[in-house]
């Protein structure tokens, strides 16, 4: 084997130089590129949205724009934004994750809620139950989740927004049921999590665990995710149970000011977020089983799958999002305490 080391050195040096140059050119290239850092279940949604926006933008300005997406557990995604991923917009699963980015990295302005209509919520959602075909364990409402032989699949609230919504929905239900008794509500949630065999990192992971690996009896999940499972895995295997009351789930969107200013993409990013409020986008949300802000823009058959049930807002029950995050999910919060009690 003839080996020319000086040649090898040159190749390596060139490769390194090339990669550093590549890194340095990323901001320059981003002028016609946006990055949307999103939470787990929205993969299919933003494929459609991004394509529609690119077309719309091209028609309006003539500029070709590519919108890239990155998906993962909402909390984990917030962490990557804090650590420097060059996101232009964030579309996360729960307001406290955006608050965290604003507070820790200062890349998002603290009053981001005021920048867009409906506190940054072009759509909302809720939590429903996915059960096995025929609903063999008879799960009709939240109370049924703590029946002794019922196994619940739900993601880890620390990393998943969906996981947090499930947690808060269960708590909110028990709080209301027991005449606003906090102790009883905590106990209910504690019992629920004792019946969870697997805690995945993201909502998508829990779905795979339930639907593909066949674990558990009920999957409390985002409404949109339940319908997606129907489409992907077949209606003959599952049933969707919409409980009489559930939580008003808020997956907000925001502009990452620091990044767009540095990359020079503010105009495009703001247009992208505005686009989410257009009729075209709202119809796409409904198509993917999200609850659009403008119900009238959606197709009738899509709306039929999103019945108007009784939804409670967790802020009404527990206070501001800072309080909610601290009380339940921060270190030493309710989730940690329940975990300790259960061992």
């Amino acid at each position: 084997m003839r080996f020319s080391n000086s040649l090898g050195h040159t190749v390596v040096a060139a490769a390194f130089g090339a990669s550093l140059a590549l890194a340095a050119t990323v901001p320059a290239r981003a002028q016609s590129e946006l990055l949307n850092v999103s939470y787990d279940p929205t993969r299919e949604l933003y494929k459609d949205i991004n394509a529609a926006f690119a077309e719309d933008w091209k028609a309006k300005t003539g500029e070709t724009i590519t919108v890239r997406a990155a998906h993962g557990g909402s909390g984990a995604q917030a962490r990557t934004v804090i650590d420097g991923i060059p996101a232009d917009v964030v579309t996360l699963g729960i307001p406290s994750d955006i608050d965290a980015i604003a507070r820790i990295s200062k890349k998002i302005s603290p009053d981001w809620r005021t920048k867009l209509p409906n506190e940054g919520l072009p759509y909302t959602s809720t939590v429903v139950f996915l059960v096995r075909k025929g609903n063999p364990k008879g799960v009709k409402d939240w109370g049924d989740l703590v029946k002794p032989d019922v196994k619940v699949i739900t993601p880890n609230p620390k990393t998943s927004a969906g996981g947090r919504w499930n947690f808060l929905a269960a708590w909110g239900y028990a709080y209301e049921q027991n005449n606003k008794d906090v102790e009883k509500a905590n106990a209910f949630v504690g019992q629920l999590y004792k019946q969870v065999p697997v805690l995945d990192t993201g909502a998508r992971g829990s779905t795979v665990t339930f639907a593909q690996r066949g674990l558990g009896d009920v999957l409390p999940t985002w409404e949109n995710e339940a319908y997606l499972v129907f489409d992907e895995f077949g209606r003959d295997k599952f049933d969707i149970v919409i409980p009489p009351t559930s939580i008003y789930a808020e997956p907000p969107v925001a502009l990452v000011d620091a990044n767009v200013d540095k990359k020079g993409t503010r105009k495009q990013a703001e247009a992208y977020l505005q686009f989410l409020y257009t009729d075209q986008a709202q119809a796409i949300f409904a198509k993917h089983h999200y609850r659009p802000l403008k119900r009238e823009a959606a197709k009738k058959e899509d709306l039929a799958l999103l019945p108007e049930i009784k939804l409670f807002k967790i802020e009404d029950l527990q206070g501001s999002w800072d309080d909610i995050q601290k009380k339940n999910f921060d270190n030493g919060g309710l989730f940690d305490q329940l975990g300790k009690a259960g061992r």
Partner: peptide
């Protein structure tokens, strides 16, 4: 990372190492 040891320096010089 942005919050890391070399974060501020990298941001200043517009160099993206992680997440790239």
């Amino acid at each position: 990372g942005s919050q890391g040891l070399l974060g501020p320096w990298l941001i200043e010089h517009d160099i993206q190492i992680i997440f790239a």
